[in-house]
Structures are given as structure tokens and as C-alpha cells.
């Protein structure tokens, strides 16, 4: 797989060199006066920014859910909520995208984004004008989609914390929360970080839902309320328009970059999870 993709990306690197990675121009139009120009920075930027927004939203929610499931929930509710979270992971990406177009985009545009713009508008990232199909919306849908993965792994990690840790803390007269914060969370810390990185990897590779809401623009803008593009979505969106070899090869090269990134990110995550939990390797499955 790597060989085939590397073979196709070789001409791209020959033509543009490393500029392919840090350049900002993506001009696929080919004519006699105009030479096409390809470089991946806008997509790398979009992938990073949208997945980081996703993490900022998803971390508190999924850790809260994982703590609730592992520590607080009554056992009957536990199975039910865990099943619902699993269901959230089973919904196809394209269905998330469909829902996002018709519910999330209008809702964010009319309520959440104006609110952020009016309260935090002095920051360049929350500057108007507001566009519904934007990096911010992509981040929100990615948060919803990576939440079940982070929750599931973090929950396994918390369940792997030996009960003696909790009992010792509770026996000292600690409240439930003190026990979680001082005994359970420190014990599972690296596993939880691993879960988060795993979710980050998922968010970076996610394609369809993002393509449907991110607005697909080749320019880097400071404001999150502006459209953008990610590595995965540019491939999905433009591969059918790639009418000549170099265009298609550039898209394949982006695929190769994405593969490299996900390989590194997942490697780190898996290492951290194996360190704390017997579940280890299986964590990436579901």
C-alpha cells in the first residue's frame, strides 16, 4: 500500500520539492498561460485546526462521561449509556454529515457563533463575518464523532484501575470526587492521554462529515468562522475533478501525508494506552 502511494507521489515531490508541504498555493487550473500549482499547507492547517477544536469540545464531555460510567453510574444505567455511546460510534459518517448540514450548520450560525463573536470577538479566531459552513462547524461535528472513541477507551482505562486504590482513598475518608481526582485519574493518566490522542487521530482522518460542512476553501484564514479544507476532504472532493496526472498525484501525495500523520499519532496513543491498561492493543478496534 505504502509502495503504491509513494510511487504515485514521487513525481509531485520531484516537481515541487518540500514546497509541497509548506506552500500555500493550490491552483489546479491548467491552461497555456497558467501552470498549475499544488501545495498542501491549507489542508494540513485545516486538518490540525478542526481536529483541535474537536478535542477542546470532546475532552471534557468524554472524560465526564467516562468517569460517570466507570465510577458513578448505577450498574443498570451503566450498560444502557455504554450501549448508546457505542451506537454513536456506529452511525455512518455520511449520516452525521447529512444531519450537520440540516441541523448543526443553521443552529451554530444563528446562535452559538454570534454569541462567541460578540463575547470573544476581540480574539482573531472568533472574528466575524460568520459563515455556517466553516472550520468551527467541522470541529463541532468532529467532536461529536470522536467522543465515543475517547469515552470508550478512557472508560476501559478507568475500569482497569485496581479497586484497592479506590478503597484506600475512601477508607481515609475522602469523598467520591476526591477519590477520583487524587487516586483514580493519576493512576490512569497516561492511558487517558492515549485515549485522547486516539480520538485526535480519528478526527484527523474523518472525511465525509467534514467535507459536507467545512465549506471547502483553499485559503488559510485566521477566523474559525470561515470556510476551510482538510487533507481528507480535499481528496474526497477533488479526486473526480483530477483530469490530468499531476493533479491526481498531488491528491495521492496528500493521502500519503495523512497516512504518515495517522501512523505517528496512533503509535503514540497505543504506546500510552498499553502502558496503563491490559486492554491495550484492542482499544483501537471499536
Amino acid at each position: 500500500m505504502i509502495v503504491v502511494m509513494a510511487q504515485e507521489s514521487w513525481p509531485v515531490f520531484q516537481q515541487f520539492g518540500l514546497k509541497f508541504i509548506y506552500g500555500t498555493d493550490w491552483q489546479p487550473v491548467q491552461s497555456d498561460q497558467h501552470k498549475p500549482e499544488f501545495s498542501a499547507l491549507p489542508f494540513i492547517y485545516g486538518t490540525l485546526v478542526s481536529s483541535i477544536i474537536a478535542l477542546v469540545i470532546a475532552i471534557p464531555l468524554s472524560l465526564g462521561t467516562a468517569i460517570f460510567l466507570a465510577e458513578w453510574a448505577p450498574s443498570k444505567l451503566r450498560a444502557l449509556v455504554a450501549y448508546f455511546i457505542e451506537l454513536l460510534a456506529a452511525i455512518p459518517s455520511v449520516v452525521y454529515g447529512l444531519w450537520a448540514i440540516f441541523f448543526l450548520v443553521p443552529w451554530l450560525r444563528s446562535t452559538v457563533m454570534p454569541f462567541l463573536a460578540s463575547t470573544l470577538g476581540f480574539l482573531p479566531i472568533f472574528q466575524p463575518p460568520i459563515v455556517g459552513f466553516s472550520l468551527f462547524t467541522a470541529g463541532v461535528i468532529l467532536a461529536i464523532m470522536s467522543l465515543p472513541y475517547i469515552t470508550a477507551v478512557a472508560r476501559e482505562v478507568l475500569l482497569a484501575v485496581p479497586n484497592s486504590q479506590r478503597e484506600a482513598m475512601l477508607a481515609l475518608g475522602a469523598t467520591r470526587w476526591e477519590c477520583i481526582r487524587k487516586a483514580v485519574l493519576p493512576y490512569g493518566r497516561s492511558g487517558i492521554v492515549g485515549a485522547i490522542i486516539l480520538g485526535w487521530g480519528r478526527a484527523q482522518g474523518e472525511t465525509m462529515a467534514v467535507t459536507m460542512v467545512i465549506g471547502n476553501s483553499h485559503y488559510i484564514k485566521a477566523s474559525l468562522f470561515q470556510p476551510g479544507y482538510t487533507m481528507a476532504s480535499v481528496i474526497a472532493n477533488e479526486i473526480n475533478e483530477a483530469t490530468y496526472a499531476l493533479y491526481a498525484q498531488s491528491l495521492i501525495t496528500i493521502g500519503l501525508l495523512l497516512f504518515a500523520v495517522s501512523f505517528i499519532v496512533n503509535g503514540i496513543a497505543r504506546y500510552l494506552i498499553i502502558k496503563t491498561s491490559p486492554l491495550g492493543r484492542g482499544g483501537a478496534n471499536e
Binding site: M1, I252, G255, L256, F259, S262, N266
Partner: peptide, 16 residues
């Protein structure tokens, strides 16, 4: 590695 590869990358491979 394959398990955590984004599905779009697998698509790119099929395409190439």
C-alpha cells in the same frame, strides 16, 4: 496500523 488508517487513505490506495 491498518486498523487505525483513515478510510479515505484506503480509498486513495484503491484509486492508485
Amino acid at each position: 496500523v491498518l486498523n487505525s488508517t483513515p478510510s479515505i487513505v484506503v480509498g486513495v490506495f484503491g484509486f492508485a
